[in-house]
């Protein structure tokens, strides 16, 4: 499947290791949690990049102590309705301090880019090459956010705190209220 970052298609240098297979010695490998637990020692001794792919019922808490071993964490979204990965991503970024590539894989749709990005994902497995085109549009559709999250946006609360007095919002005053709430 095509891989996108910042709206561009990018190469995927990672090799997915099938469950039950013995991980090869060379190359950047993406392994499942099962493979990681089974071949943990051998995988830790390798001198090549290692990534892990977690299913939607596998919390990153499972690997919280091993995060420095991974250059890629891929979180599976089996169907777009399954929203667990959004929490997992924020935990990885904000709680566990994971700073490398965080990839959304599975049923990743254009209308999810924005929230996925806010929660800390930076690469996206998409269904078609064209699916990456809508990236910037999707990210800029809503320009402010109420919540702090894993992205660099300053939440509305912080923007309000920084606002100068002369641009203060309309204050309630009973004269306009009584006049039928006219502007």
């Amino acid at each position: 499947m095509p891989l996108a970052k910042d709206g561009q298609l990018i190469d995927d240098p990672w090799t997915l290791v099938a469950d039950g297979a013995v991980p090869p010695a060379e190359g950047a490998l993406l392994v499942s949690y099962a493979t990681w637990t089974e071949h943990r020692d051998a995988l830790s001794r390798r001198n090549a990049p290692l990534g892990i792919r977690l299913d939607s019922d596998q919390s990153p808490a499972l690997i919280a102590d091993d995060l420095d071993r991974f250059d890629l964490i891929a979180l599976d979204i089996p169907v777009f309705k399954d929203g667990r990965a959004y929490s997992y991503a924020r935990l990885l970024r904000e709680r566990y301090g994971y700073a490398k590539e965080l990839r959304a894989v599975g049923n990743v749709l254009r209308d999810q880019y924005h929230f996925l990005h806010r929660c800390g994902f930076d690469t996206f497995e998409v269904a078609t090459d064209e699916a990456a085109d809508a990236w910037w549009e999707a990210l800029s559709e809503i320009s402010h956010a109420y919540q702090p999250a894993a992205d660099a946006r300053r939440p509305i609360l912080a923007l309000r705190q920084a606002r100068t007095e002369h641009s203060a919002p309309p204050r309630p005053d009973t004269a306009t209220v009584a006049a039928g709430w006219a502007y």
Binding site: F115, R118, A145, Y146, Q147, I156
Partner: peptide
């Protein structure tokens, strides 16, 4: 209301 509006983490709850 404001906090929950377009919450990026909680828009695909169970």
């Amino acid at each position: 209301r404001q906090w929950s509006t377009l919450h990026p983490e909680f828009s695909f709850l169970p």
